[in-house]
Simulated scan of single mutants.
Amino acid sequence: MSVGENAPNGAMLHYVLPDTTSKEITLTIRDAKGDSVITYSSEKDPKGEPFTVDASFHLDSLHRPSPQALTKLKGLNTFRWNLRYPDAERLEGAVMWGGGTSGPRALPGTYSATMKVGTDSATVPLTIISDPRLTTSAADLQAQFDMIQKINAKTTEVHKAIKRIRTIKQQVSGVTSRFADLDTATSKPAKELAKVITDTLTSIENELVQTKAKAGQDLLNYPVKLNNKIASLADVVASADYAPTQQSIDLYNELSRQADAYLATIAWVESAKITEFNTAIDALKLPAVAPNKDGK
């Protein structure tokens, strides 16, 4: 049966290279004010992390390590901007039900795309046109956009906190294994502090993310936790082209309050208990737990 193919969803950007290049190519989308919306690269993802290639999978037909990578081939190249702002922080291995980390869609208006190859650059204008069938006001669409950004920012906070919890637990476990054979009286303070830190952080981690779920259907047996509740709220707000409802705003405020309480406890563990633990293991001539850097 012959079937048609829908046009690609997003802004199609075409560029011609005189030859295949080893130089990094970047594409920056800016809004009408000139503020950066998102930057794509041939070498890094939009968060600035180098692309990693999974050796167990083949690259796509364009030999890209990721759909977000710009191609660098001789002749005509094409890149599709999906009209979205950057995603919220992902949590590898986390199973989500009815929620994700996608960034909000860009609002109707004027934008620009600037491509750089080495020292050469070129800029073209872009215009996003509102669906003519919509009667939603610009103010309501802006309110929806702002709410999704706020929700994603909280999701990012929570996911970074979970990553930090796991880093601390790994470091504490590594240190405690090194003094397991030391004299009990000498190592007792450090062992007790290690247990308090590990137990406290594990308790918080289990409230922030469902650690038992390994596949989507597992969430039928194990309830979703706070990160999933927050992330799924973004999908609810984005489900129609309208301003967020008061119920969504109220739910966000409640979930955010819960998240902030857990984040405050993590900060207390780092400022108080980790400091005490580092003092205790310093007496044992062992390396300290590294401080948090850049909120990661």
Rank of each mutant, 00 (worst) to 15 (best):
R84V: 08
P65W: 09
W81S: 09
G103N: 14
K74A: 02
D54P: 11
L126N: 00
A88S: 15
P86G: 12
T127M: 00
L107A: 06
W81C: 04
D87P: 01
S112P: 04
F57D: 09
G98Q: 11
V95Y: 11
G75A: 13
K116I: 02
P108S: 13
M96W: 09
T52V: 14
S41P: 01
Y111A: 03
A122N: 15
V117Q: 02
P104D: 13
P50F: 08
L76A: 15
S61P: 04
D120P: 00
E49I: 10
R90L: 10
P50A: 09
L70N: 06
Y111F: 13
L76N: 11
S56G: 05
K116S: 11
S41Y: 04
Y40C: 00
P125E: 02
T127N: 11
P125N: 03
T101N: 04
V53W: 11
S66P: 04
E89A: 12
P67K: 03
Q68I: 00
S130K: 14
P65R: 07
Q68T: 10
A113C: 05
G118T: 06
R80S: 11
N77D: 04
S102A: 15
T71Y: 06
L83E: 12
A94Y: 08
L126R: 02
V117F: 01
N77M: 06
K116W: 06
E43C: 05
P46M: 11
T123P: 00
E43Q: 08
R64H: 11
F79A: 05
E92G: 00
